[in-house]
């Protein structure tokens, strides 16, 4: 029983946490690619920026003496989402729209997005320093422990408060996005434009509006993902820059331009990473009693050493690009 609990704690919970973050980021990347046809590299830093906006707001609330049962960083999330979305619109207006108007190639936009990455990263570190901040302003991180002694387990299943919140929020956002894309007029227009931009424009769809909505969705989801990551781990300036590549891997594995694919890809990459570094001996130890002396399991039976955890995502990315570049859901290939 303990082995199963260990597995749940180490693989199921942490894989789902990571998967939620990857999925939220990858949806933004994939939507921007579907509508604007370029790989938006600055998405990771938009996540970091969103997290820092939430941090500032939470600090301000704490300074006003507000005390609530939930983490303040979570309470301020809607406001932070709006601010991040507005900044995302501003970035598009200032840096990408002029290039698009000139008819620049997607590659030029990709390079421009790297410029934006550098600017955001430089600014965030300039303002907040390069050290680690805590987004828990004057609150401890609560840990829920599910007692498993009724099932014969000696250790509890533990899950932290932000992790639980993250599951709920991700599920809500995904359902909301699904309803938006399939039920609303604007969502349908978005899918039409992702499918064929020229045809969408001819049939009277306001493409400028669709572009703006895309940035609003991508920006606010990036803010949620960044804040959740900061609540779960810690708030650092290079928080999301390190995970922008796994996010791209998730978006590509799911098929670029395909919102549901991005969600599946996010969880796929996250579980692949978690399972690859998982020490299987911890689960298979009972077998040692059955196996003969010569075949005893070694102390560490992980597929790859822990320091190569992120490499797993890149290997999956490269293999996907080589074997099936359109991803599992046949995303946009042009």
């Amino acid at each position: 029983m303990d082995e199963l609990i260990f597995f749940i704690n180490r693989v199921l919970i942490s894989g789902t946490v990571l998967g939620s973050i990857y999925a939220l980021g990858a949806i933004g990347v994939t939507l921007i690619f579907g509508i604007l046809r370029f790989a938006h590299f600055a998405h990771g830093d938009m996540m970091t920026m969103g997290a820092f906006i939430a941090f500032v707001l939470a600090t301000a609330l704490a300074a006003m003496g507000v005390v609530l049962p939930l983490p303040l960083g979570f309470i301020v999330l809607p406001v932070a989402m709006v601010i991040t979305a507005v900044i995302a619109l501003g970035i598009d207006k200032g840096f990408y729209a002029p290039l698009r108007a000139r008819g620049a190639k997607p590659v030029t936009l990709l390079i421009a997005s790297i410029g934006v990455t550098l600017m955001i990263q430089g600014l965030v570190r300039l303002i907040f320093g390069s050290g680690t901040q805590s987004i828990y302003v004057g609150q401890p991180k609560e840990i829920f422990r599910l007692d498993m002694s009724w099932a014969g387990g000696s250790r509890p299943i533990s899950i932290t408060e932000p992790q639980l919140l993250m599951f709920i929020v991700t599920a809500l956002l995904v359902v909301a996005l699904h309803l938006f894309l399939t039920r609303s007029r604007l969502g349908k227009a978005m899918r039409a434009m992702a499918d064929n931009a020229a045809l969408a424009q001819v049939s009277g769809i306001n493409t400028a509006l669709v572009v703006r909505v895309t940035w609003v969705i991508a920006g606010s989801l990036a803010c949620v993902a960044g804040t959740m990551l900061a609540l779960d781990v810690a708030l650092m300036p290079d928080l999301a820059f390190n995970i922008v590549l796994p996010i791209f891997a998730a978006a590509i594995v799911g098929g670029l331009g395909h919102a549901y694919g991005a969600i599946v890809g996010g969880f796929l990459i996250a579980f692949a990473e978690t399972l690859a570094v998982f020490n299987w001996t911890a689960v298979l130890r009972p077998l040692n009693g059955v196996l003969p002396e010569a075949m005893q399991l070694p102390a560490n039976l992980a597929l790859v050493p822990t320091e190569y955890k992120l490499t797993v995502a890149f290997v999956i990315l490269v293999i996907t690009l080589l074997v099936r570049p359109t991803g599992i859901f046949k995303g946009a290939s042009t």
Partner: peptide, 18 residues
């Protein structure tokens, strides 16, 4: 902090150049 200024400057240079 000043060390990070150059990252920002690099970003400004590339976007302006593009």
């Amino acid at each position: 902090r000043a060390l990070q200024m150059r990252v920002f400057v690099l970003g400004v240079v590339i976007t302006v150049a593009l």
